[in-house]
Simulated assay, not measured.
Amino acid sequence: MDGEEILTYEAAGARLEAIIARLDSGEAGLRETLDLCREGRTLVEFCATELEAVGQGLEELRLDELVARLESGSAAA
């Protein structure tokens, strides 16, 4: 990946697929296999962090929605 390119979840997933395909091909040498495994681990960790952040954001939205419902319910009472 280019140093100036911003990594996205989708780009990381696509790169992981390419890494898996290369490893599955059996054509990668020992050093390349090690490098691909290291890169893959970094990408998996990035994706996990992104998913966690999105999950937290969704949870916050649900809490905001719940608070809004409670507030509107108590205002109507």
Rank of each mutant, 00 (worst) to 15 (best):
M1W: 09
M1G: 15
G3R: 14
E4G: 04
E4H: 12
E5S: 08
I6K: 15
L7S: 00
T8N: 04
T8W: 05
A11P: 07
A12V: 06
G13V: 06
G13R: 06
A14H: 05
A18P: 05
I19M: 03
I20A: 13
A21G: 05
L23Y: 01
S25T: 04
S25F: 10
E27R: 13
A28F: 00
A28M: 03
R31A: 15
E32P: 01
L34W: 06
L34I: 04
D35M: 03
L36W: 00
C37Y: 06
G40A: 12
G40P: 03
T42P: 01
T42Y: 12
V44Q: 03
E45H: 07
E45R: 02
F46I: 02
A48Q: 15
T49H: 09
T49I: 09
T49Y: 03
E50L: 00
E50R: 04
L51M: 05
L51K: 09
E52Y: 12
E52K: 11
A53R: 08
Q56H: 11
L58P: 03
L58T: 00
E59F: 06
E65S: 10
L66S: 09
A68T: 06
A68F: 03
E71Q: 10
E71C: 08
S72R: 04
S72G: 01
S72W: 01
G73W: 13
G73Q: 14
A76V: 14
A77S: 04
